[in-house]
C-alpha cells in the first residue's frame, strides 16, 4: 500500500528565484553583473586585470569578486587596478550560487558600482547550472585548451552570451585551429560572439568592458538556443528550469534537518580560518 504523490518542482528553483531577485535588486541600484566562467589557467585573471584597469582609467565604477584565484598574488594583481576587489575562499566548492553571491555583496558592494565582474570557481561544469543574477555570462578558453572545448563542455558554452579566447599570441605555437573552434561554438550556441584576445599583446583589451557597458546600458545580450526553452522544456527562468514554488533563504535549513550541509562556508580572505565543510 504505497502512496504516490505527483509533483512538479524544478530542483534549482530556489537558486533561480534568488538569482532573479538579486538581478532586480542590483539593477535597481544601477549595477550589472558579469559572470565569468572558465577552466583553471585560462588567463582569466590577466584579462580581468586589464579590463579593470581600463575601466578605472576611464572613470567607470567597477568592482570584482573572485572565487577563482590560483594564488594570493592574483588578488593583489586585480587590486592593483585600483578598484574594489573581494576574494571569496570556497575551499573546494565547485560553483557559486546566487544566495552566496548576495551574502558576499551585502555591506561590501560600493554604491554606484556600474559593473560587477564575478570570477566564478574555475571549472566549466558546475557553475554553468547556476544563474547568479548576471546580465552577461562570459565563457573563456585559452588557445591551449583545444578546439573541441565547446563540445566537451556544451552546457557552459551553450549558455554563454559571449565567448572570449585568451592567449591568442601563442595560438600558432599551440596549434589552435580557430575555424574549428568557431564551428564548435556555433554548433552548441549559434549566434554567440567569439572574440580573440591576448593580454600579453594587449589585443582585444576593452572588448569585455564595452560589451558589459552595452548590456548595462540596456542593449539586449545574446540569447542562446539552450536558454530558449519552450513550454515543454520547462520555461520560466532563462536557464530553463521550471519554476513552481517557494522563496526561501538559501541557507535557512532547519537545524533538525539531520543531513550534513555540503555547501562550503564561504569566507572572505580576512575571515579565513572559519571552519568550512566541503564536498568535492
Amino acid at each position: 500500500m504505497c502512496r504516490v504523490v505527483d509533483l512538479q518542482q524544478a530542483v534549482l528553483v530556489k537558486n533561480d528565484e534568488r538569482a532573479g531577485s538579486l538581478r532586480a535588486e542590483l539593477t535597481a541600484r544601477g549595477t550589472t553583473v558579469v559572470n565569468l566562467l572558465s577552466s583553471p589557467g585560462s588567463g582569466k585573471t590577466a584579462l580581468l586585470e586589464a579590463e579593470l584597469a581600463l575601466a578605472a582609467s576611464r572613470g567607470v565604477p567597477v568592482a570584482a569578486l573572485t572565487a577563482d584565484l590560483a594564488t594570493e598574488h592574483d588578488a593583489e594583481r586585480l587590486a592593483r587596478a585600483g578598484v574594489p576587489v573581494k576574494q571569496v575562499l570556497t575551499d573546494g566548492l565547485c560553483h557559486l550560487e546566487a544566495g552566496m553571491l548576495g551574502e558576499q555583496l551585502e555591506g561590501w558592494l560600493p554604491a554606484g558600482t556600474r559593473l560587477l565582474f564575478v570570477e566564478n570557481v574555475g571549472n566549466l561544469v558546475c557553475p554553468a547550472s547556476y544563474d547568479l543574477g548576471e546580465s552577461l555570462r562570459v565563457v573563456l578558453a585559452s588557445v591551449t585548451e583545444g578546439e573541441d572545448k565547446p563540445l566537451k563542455y556544451p552546457t557552459a558554452f551553450g549558455l554563454a552570451q559571449l565567448v572570449i579566447v585568451t592567449k591568442d599570441d601563442i595560438a600558432e605555437a599551440a596549434g589552435f585551429d580557430e575555424e574549428a573552434f568557431r564551428a564548435n561554438v556555433h554548433q552548441v550556441n549559434p549566434g554567440v560572439d567569439v572574440v580573440l584576445t591576448s593580454a600579453r599583446r594587449g589585443t582585444g583589451t576593452g572588448l569585455l568592458l564595452e560589451r558589459a557597458l552595452a548590456v548595462a546600458g540596456g542593449e539586449e545580450a545574446h540569447r542562446p538556443v539552450m536558454a530558449r526553452t519552450g513550454s515543454g522544456s520547462g520555461g520560466g527562468s532563462s536557464y530553463g528550469h521550471t519554476h513552481t514554488h517557494t522563496h526561501a533563504h538559501p541557507h535557512a535549513h532547519a537545524d533538525a534537518g539531520a543531513h550534513a550541509h555540503p555547501h562550503t562556508t564561504i569566507t572572505t580572505a580576512s575571515a579565513a580560518g572559519v571552519p568550512a565543510r566541503s564536498h568535492s
Binding site: D6, L7, P190, V225, S233
Partner: peptide, 21 residues
Amino acid sequence: GKAELVSGRELQITGLRHADG
C-alpha cells in the same frame, strides 16, 4: 540559429512514493 529547445534541460522532481503511510 533561432531554434528553441523543446526538451532536454529538465531537472525536475515529478513525484514521490511513500512506503505504506
